[in-house]
Design a protein around this nucleic acid. Structure first.
Lengths: 179, 179
DNA sequence: ACCGTTGTGAACATGAGTGTTCACGTCCTC
DNA sequence: GAGGACGTGAACACTCATGTTCACAACGGT
């Protein structure tokens, strides 16, 4: 059940970052006292949510075989379902106030950067900064999750959409565009 | 000066959505009383920030000549500098609670969707939903702003980076990738 | 049947943010 | 120089989230 509480809390706090602990507890179907017993203070709760999100994202990233040809495909497939957790990490800027969390946040996507750097020159363009490519990938994943949450996108269509846009852009084939 | 207050308030509230009005006032270099005189309640302030952001984005969008060949280029160039305002509209989900704001938010990017729809088949791929292309464009703009804010990207490089990624993706030329 | 664990609501004290008022400066205008 | 407009800090009462405690109910294992 603990897991469900964290999940609900994440979505509630994403919908309204100023939501009271009472609202969070009610949404999770649990008493405020119970919530307080598990997370003595509001910061503790936020911290726990961030830690869990980081754990999940870390697990997703390290579960991909970075040597495989389909490494990026695996990554996207793993990240899209984590939508709300990724969103949480992005939308709570003051997570960086915590030393430990801040470090994990900065280190988190190093494997992704490394993977991209290694692929630049073969599968990926070498004239773009690696961090930009990573950012583009994340943005695609996040946009896809948003589309799913809004009901505009079928979950099964998401990875394909992200990947084709990521790789090929949105230009009509045959038109040689320039910036 | 009013403009500067709104700008500062936006950045403060983005950094910490729970920031007190006192902090906002201090950051803007005005007394809390003065702030209160202009915006009697916290909601009024938020509402004013959202309205101003919407005005700026609206102005940016409607300032581009949608008939021009460089419509999208113009759009990107106009949107990137609006970074914080766009971020504000994205990161305050409960703006939708206000009837008027909600309507403006949903109507806002209709011209962009229309422009994209019109370009699909000529310059833009027709096998992707128009909303997805728009989303991809926004995501690129936002990522660019983020890069600028973090000091990783020179403001002048931003539009080019966004556009080349948007149009062509990140695939190395010569590699025929598939999703 | 007993007892530890766990979840719960009720109640309370406290602190912080908020809305409001007031009296005091400063600047500009007439 | 009188008077209004505007910004300001100090002070106040009020609300509300929060942290904390306590007594009670449900459950499971021994």
């Amino acid at each position: 059940m603990s897991v469900h509480v964290l999940e609900t809390a994440t979505s509630v706090l994403l919908r309204d970052p100023t939501a009271s602990l009472g609202e969070v507890a009610k949404a999770a179907g649990v008493g405020r006292t119970t919530l307080h017993k598990r997370f003595p203070t509001r910061s503790d709760l936020i911290h726990a949510l961030a830690t869990e999100a980081l754990d999940l994202v870390d697990a997703a990233i390290s579960s991909v075989d970075t040597g495989s040809d389909t490494a990026i495909e695996q990554l996207v497939a793993k990240l899209v379902p984590l939508g709300p957790r990724v969103e949480f990490l992005l939308r709570f800027p003051n997570l960086r106030d915590d030393e430990r969390l801040s470090m994990r946040l900065t280190v988190m996507d190093q494997p992704v950067i490394d993977l991209i750097s290694r692929l630049q020159g073969t599968r990926l363009r070498a004239d773009l900064p690696a961090w930009w490519i990573a950012q583009t990938l994340y943005a695609g994943v996040y946009s896809a999750w948003e589309g799913i949450a809004a009901g505009r996108l079928a979950p099964l269509d998401a990875p394909g959409l992200v990947l084709t846009t990521f790789y090929q852009g949105v230009s009509h084939v045959g038109a040689a565009d320039r910036s």
